[in-house]
Amino acid sequence: MATVLLADSTWVLFVNICLNGLTTGFLYALIALGYTMVYGIVELINFAHGDLFMLGCFFAWSLVSAAAVATGSTGALLLLLAILLLTPLFCAAINWSVDRVIYRPRRSAPKLNLLVSAIGVSFIFMNIGQLWGGAQDLDFPRLVEDRNLLPADSGLQFSLIDAIVISVTVPTMIGLAIFVKLTPLGKAMRAVAQNPMAAQLMGINTNRVISATFLIGGALAGVGSVVYVLKIPTINWAMGFQNGLYAFTSAVLGGIGNIPGAVLGAILIGMVYSLGSWYDARWATTLVFLILIVILVFRPAGILGTHTREKV
């Protein structure tokens, strides 16, 4: 019976599209979380976030190049672990520094000033990317063999890389959820996001909490960079723009400022993108933004977003 079902090519295709959509979605989720957390806490759409993700990819590329590409499979695995550890640290440090040097002095300025600053940072990052890797595409060396883990005769595609992507992203997101829900710093983050002045009256050092948010958002983007270079081994200085846009769209779709919303929005966008790419790659992006528009017409605050009305 099962073999009859598996032989059904439509079903196989559908599962493949979903699996691909899921891993793509998880990648966008990692970036989207950085957008949504920073927006939630300082109401800044951090336009530079996609480009931070790009810098993370370049950093990983430099690390791998410096290691001159290990030959044995254990060597490649060690290298993978090294970039998985160091890239998030790199991105976290950059994101923290940008906040400290550029955004924090403008904290009490009108929000538009911050937004324009973020656009400026985005350009700076893109130029650093060009300086770093040149203007053309760079090939990222294959660290992991792209082997299909499912039986070939089933027609299903689920590669070793997909497995790594899921085993990195899912625990990361669960860890983040637990952190935000249960730890004092996580609770302080939610408090600052909901009412910064009241948070200060509780004795919370809001600047420190905001710094921590930039650190965590940056680290998540760094994990995203590693996941990306595993999945799609071509990088360039402009990649932050489009990927950042998808991630930002995910955050808006899920309800900006809402952490589970960002993940949900990203998975949805990953799925739609995957489906669109199967139908006709030229229409994939159009389909993604069409869905965004339709959902925002009916739920302006996003799927899980709420316009909280405070009672007086």
Partner: peptide
């Protein structure tokens, strides 16, 4: 020195218990 501000300024999406815990943040 603690304050209960004008307009309450409750954290709307934290539970009552979490609001109380925030008060004990320090």
């Amino acid at each position: 020195l603690a304050q209960s501000p004008e307009g309450r300024k409750i954290f709307p999406r934290l539970t009552v218990l979490e609001n109380l815990e925030m008060g004990a943040f320090t």
